[in-house]
Amino acid sequence: MDKNLASRPKVKVAFWTTESTLAYLLLLPAIAVLIAFMLYPIVYVFLTSLYKTNRIGNLVEFIETDNFKTLFSRREFWEVTIRSVIWTVLAVSAKTLVGLTIALLLNVDFKGRKLARTLVILPWASSVPISAMLWQWTYNYDFGLLNYTLKITGLWKHPPHWLGYPLSAFVANLYVDIWIGIPFMALVFLAGLQSVPPNLYEAAEADGASLWQKFYHITLPLLKPVLLIATLLSCLWTFNDFNVIYILTRGGPVNSTDILITFIYKYAFSFLKFGPAAAMAVVAFAILLILSLLYAWFYFKSERY
């Protein structure tokens, strides 16, 4: 990309002003919109986190870091934060493992592979909020087809009341998040696998390498850049997953399935405590910033800008 710009011959082109002025002009609407509706709101959240707020979110009194102090002193906050970390780690590991497995399977040439690939995409292609609603019905204890199927197939004789208890509700939420995230992982790994030169495997086969050896010594090292960027991306999405938890359980029973992102929303729009909610948003912002900087950095490195 850059090479293209650099190698560009110096042609005198006729346009009304210098190149950079034109560039800034073309970028102006985008930058203006992002400043007004992205940057300014972020600054405003920081500001709100330092204020006492009333029930409609107006800033009432400057209280320095009091919002943070109360937040950090509450057990609830730490529980939710730790749960967000566990949630992200478990979900991303599962998505990566299953995604990689599916990619390896789809990389084998068999009849119906194209159809299988398309069908694998469906959980990602479907609308997340609507999927979450459909899952709520699937998980239904009395009439849901999940427990019924688990029972009649003998896979699980006494399946739990999924959304009724803290642990099973957490697992149920986690499963839906993983379910949505698997297709991207599978697709991105499949694309990575398909760019591995086949002669590497042929050479290894000639040397008598086993399936596992080929995977461990050829596939895995070559997949490393994809693995890195895909897991970072997945961390961001998983940490940010609001729809699944809000729609399936609203963080319940009694906040037991809340993660930071849903908790912020609850604090602001259910409890109307905008100050503490903003303080939590600042914490979440810091975490997300680190992750997205890492992602952007690796992305840039891979593109060789």
Binding site: P41, Y44, V45, F239, N240, F242, I261, A268, L288, S292
Partner: peptide, 16 residues
């Protein structure tokens, strides 16, 4: 690239 990844939740309070 960085901005693309921000959660809408971070700014929903302000945008409201």
């Amino acid at each position: 690239l960085v901005v693309q990844m921000f959660s809408p939740i971070i700014v929903v309070i302000s945008l409201f």
